[in-house]
Design a protein around this nucleic acid. Structure first.
Lengths: 250, 250
DNA sequence: CGGGGACTTGATGGTTGTCAAGAAATGTGG
DNA sequence: CCACATTTCTTGACAACCATCAAGTCCCCG
């Protein structure tokens, strides 16, 4: 019981902070804002840590538990993902005024300081009320966090410099819509794929046909693939699944 | 005055919806959740539209005013950005369970139905209280929307198939940290750039040096660039600025 | 059956990755 | 402050790869 109670202590402190804020407005307006906004109105003294990193240090590392999101006050940070085979993908560089570290599940990226950096950390908090349903505090909408995760997953595709690797990685990832089964249905054209992967239609077509010829899957129709030996395909591209939709807890 | 008042009517309706919700919980817990959560707790009957698109139609188009975010119930959609010179970049494909359409400013992407599609639309709402400060309803945290915008901006870099175009576009975009002035300071190494742009260190170095040789800028130090003729560089890559940090209104 | 769009395949030249070496910048110890 | 070591950046040569242009095939739809 210590976990939940501890979190509740936070909330108690927080409520006191808010009381003064509320008194400055009409209740009505205040309630509207608070009820419906996806904006976090963080109270003073609510856990926001300010801290510094020197060049080369990390705010967090790939694989860490996700504990909050960050804002850069000063300096620059690279958000980078490491693959098992040594490839590295920098999702973006963040500088003064930028925020990062949303998303779901474990950290997919390391946040490495390129310079000396000052950061603000906004902690995710979870408490429990009497009904045992969790209350998420300062936590973005799950749909939004998943969307962020998906976009960052797309960026990871560009760590492949060879066209057929990139295509293969995309196909494996996209097969989540078919429940990662043998059958993979493609609703988009080759041109759409090309525009997604930064290739030409021809290269996409060649890559898919080549992969099929090399036995990684069967191309039953242009838009229907049967992945006979999934493991071999995954091995080809050091496949890393994106976090499942179920992993919604911060 | 009709605009704000109309919005306020929405809120009034909404408040009534919420009253019943509140009564089911202790005020204390309810206030905590509502005050601090970045989760939108949308009331029943609050504007969520369900609608269908047939293959080929668009939920919205690049350049449209942003009026809300979407959730796919069924079917597939491509989110794609069109450049002036005919290039096209598909940021991602969204399918059942995925959400899209966050971000700031005008729509940067068109949402094109690849199949017949069923969607849920969650509208952004803005109202005004007595103090004239806007109240954002069902609107994600600005920092998060900017982060989303930034990641999607990165993806747009991959629409360039030639290395030096991609590098040039990155440099122009990154110079926002120096206020889009002549001077451009790069806090990251060539390898970091390569890992960001899906190239090798060598190609990045070559691209930068080539651009300098061709007179697009001066390379004063490896990490310090002086952009003498910004217009010419922008012309080279059909530069499109990412929305400024100031454009926060939905 | 005929037409048109999407996909596949071939040939070729330009671009990039790879391997290798050299130059410049940075850091370290004397 | 200088000499040396180390890292980072630049450049060259070559082979592999991809974009381009062009043609041919498949499939869907009228």
């Amino acid at each position: 019981m210590s976990g939940p109670m501890q979190a509740f202590g936070h909330i108690r402190m927080f409520l006191l902070c808010q009381a003064s804020t509320l008194s400055r407005r009409t209740n009505r307006v205040a309630v509207i804002r608070l009820e419906t906004s996806m904006i976090s109105r963080e109270a003073p003294n609510f856990p926001i840590n300010v801290f510094d990193l020197s060049k080369g240090q990390s705010a967090y590392r790939q694989g860490d538990t996700r504990d909050g999101w960050y804002e850069v006050t000063d300096g620059f940070i690279a958000l980078c993902h490491y693959f098992g085979d040594g490839r590295r993908q920098v999702s973006r560089f963040v500088g003064p005024g930028d925020a990062f570290g949303f998303g779901i599940g474990l950290r997919q990226f390391s946040a490495e300081a390129l310079t000396d950096v000052r950061l603000k950390r906004h902690t995710f908090e979870v408490a429990f009320d009497d009904t045992t349903s969790p209350i998420h505090i300062n936590t973005p909408h799950p749909a939004l966090r998943r969307a962020m995760e998906a976009v960052e997953g797309t960026i990871r595709l560009f760590s492949y410099t060879h066209a057929s690797d990139r295509v293969a990685a995309f196909l494996l990832n996209f097969s989540r819509y078919d429940g990662h089964t043998e059958t993979l249905h493609l609703p988009m054209s080759r041109q759409d794929l090309a525009d997604h992967l930064g290739l030409t239609m021809h290269t996409v077509s060649r890559s898919i046909c080549d992969l099929a010829r090399r036995g990684y899957f069967q191309l039953e129709r242009p838009d229907l693939i049967r992945i006979s030996d999934r493991a071999r395909l995954e091995q080809l591209v050091e496949y890393e699944p994106t976090p499942d939709h179920e992993q919604l807890v911060a």
